[in-house]
């Protein structure tokens, strides 16, 4: 399958509703001005299930997905499972700097600390923030100190809700530069 230049693939995984994928894709298009494509859904990654922790290992999922050919430059997989990396109790999403595939999970985004359910629109917005943040890492953006930037690290839902859905001007600049670099390497490859 030929690689589509700058096409960002959005893959719903397992039980993730397709409209969450659609909302995330719309946010990516809207805020980053990049074309997106909803890719066929993948099965729940049971291969990454950790029976001791009763969670899914994000590192293993990324490793597996990066070996797949999606036909897009970068891919964001949207999941509805509880993700972890060995260090942490949980993660909302995960991506490697400069990698090809990012994960964003809505599992912990659809329930407040007090057990209540937030409005669906808030869940979509949170999912889009996590997806865009992880996508930033795929374009080699690091965590930003500015808490008014999407690349600022959010450890919990309160922080995530306070974080805006756009980059600060420095990260925006880095993102655009990274996009140009990516474009060059794509043309050269």
């Amino acid at each position: 399958m030929a690689t589509k230049k700058f096409m960002i693939g959005v893959v719903p995984v397992g039980d993730t509703p397709v409209f969450v994928a659609k909302a995330t894709a719309a946010h990516i298009s809207g805020y980053l001005n990049l074309p997106t494509e909803i890719l066929p859904a993948l099965d729940t990654p049971s291969f990454a299930y950790d029976e001791k922790r009763l969670q899914y290992n994000a590192g293993i999922i990324i490793k597996t997905y990066e070996a797949l050919e999606f036909g897009c430059e970068k891919v964001v997989a949207l999941l509805d499972i509880d993700l972890f990396i060995p260090l942490f109790t949980h993660v909302f999403g995960e991506a490697k700097l400069g990698g090809k595939c990012a994960l964003a999970s809505i599992f912990r985004l659809k329930m407040e600390r007090d057990g209540s359910c937030p409005a669906p629109s808030l869940v979509y917005e949170r999912a889009a923030k996590v997806a865009l943040h992880e996508l930033g890492h795929l374009f080699k953006l690091r965590h930003c100190e500015d808490n008014r930037c999407l690349m600022h690290f959010s450890g919990d839902l309160e922080q995530l809700d306070r974080t805006p859905i756009y980059f600060c001007r420095y990260c925006n600049r880095f993102f655009k530069d990274a996009l140009v670099d990516n474009s060059d390497s794509s043309f050269n490859s």
């Binding site: 922790r53 972890f84 060995p86 260090l87 942490f88 109790t89 949980h90 993660v91 690290f153 450890g155 919990d156 922080q159």
Partner: peptide, 10 residues
């Protein structure tokens, strides 16, 4: 203590 919350590391 492993595992810890991401914000604890920060």
């Amino acid at each position: 203590l492993k595992p810890f919350k991401p914000e604890q590391l920060n």
